[in-house]
Simulated scan of single mutants.
Amino acid sequence: MFPNKKARWSQTIHQHMRNQKSLYIFVAVLFMMGVVFGTVIVNMLDPNQKSGLLNYLGYFFRQLHEDQIAEPFVAFQHATGDHLKTIGLLWILGLSVIGIPIILILIFIKGLVIGFTVGFLVNQLSWDGLWFACVSIVPQNLFVVPTFIIVAVTGISFSLLLIRNRLIHHRGAIYPSFVSFSLLAMGMGILLIVAGGFEAYISPWLMKKVLPHTSWISSMIHLSLK
């Protein structure tokens, strides 16, 4: 029973990926454009803006060094809440005909934020910044980004189905697709809870392990203590 069900799920996922291949490529490229644009913005910051961000980083590193960051459970609530709100918004936008451009904008902004954060760390802290980004930003986003892209693509696909079946042909069933889209969004929400747990409980531990081994970050901590 279970092997057959697993095989059906695998076949369904494979068919979905094949049918929406071009849409996945488009959304992934849009996300990467956001990442690139975010790194470009870093080079456009004036010295005062960079100084302000560096001061904030120094304060954050000091708080992390002294174990004064938010309690893991509080951080878990905030991280998970933000992720689930985004998934919920993508789901709602996918149910509307006019939601497609907003979905694309959200994916672009997600890439922009990641690109800017990693780009600023690398720009200011060189290899130390890259190493810190690898343990603080990349791990949870290995869950978050694919999840957002999957829900975004499925939402866009459902919106296009609405346009074809309700606005153009005025016929065709949409309820099965609605149920599938909703179940997928719920499943992705579970993955985001896992990502929130990693972000709250594992990432701070990894960041604290990195701090003593990065010369730039250690010097920033000492400067912020003065």
Rank of each mutant, 00 (worst) to 15 (best):
L211Q: 09
S182C: 09
G196P: 11
I69S: 12
S22A: 10
L45A: 05
N165V: 03
A79S: 15
V35D: 01
W216L: 12
L84F: 10
L192A: 10
F60H: 06
L162S: 02
D128K: 06
K85T: 11
I13G: 00
I163W: 06
F158Q: 01
K226H: 14
S136Y: 02
L161W: 01
G34Q: 05
G129L: 06
M17P: 00
F120W: 06
L160K: 02
I13S: 04
V118R: 02
T154S: 11
F73R: 08
G81W: 13
I25K: 07
T12Q: 13
I217E: 08
L30V: 03
A70D: 12
I92V: 15
L104Y: 03
S177A: 07
F143C: 04
H65L: 02
H14S: 11
F2L: 15
A195F: 14
M44W: 12
R8D: 12
F116G: 04
F198C: 14
G115N: 05
L95V: 10
I105Q: 08
G94P: 10
A173N: 00
Q68W: 10
I102V: 15
F26D: 01
V36A: 14
T117L: 07
N19T: 08
M186L: 15
M188N: 07
L112R: 03
N123V: 04
R164E: 05
V145Q: 02
V144T: 07
I168A: 01
I100W: 05
H14W: 06
A28L: 09
R18M: 11
I69W: 13
G94E: 09
Y201P: 07
T154E: 09
V210H: 10
L125W: 08
A75W: 12
F120L: 14
T147V: 06
V122F: 09
R171C: 00
G99V: 09
V153R: 01
T80N: 08
H78G: 07
F198E: 15
S224E: 13
L183Q: 12
L89P: 04
N19K: 11
V194T: 13
T39I: 06
G99E: 11
I103K: 02
G187E: 06
R62H: 09
V35P: 01
W205L: 14
D46R: 09
I41Y: 09
W216R: 11
V74I: 15
N165F: 03
I163G: 01
L23C: 01
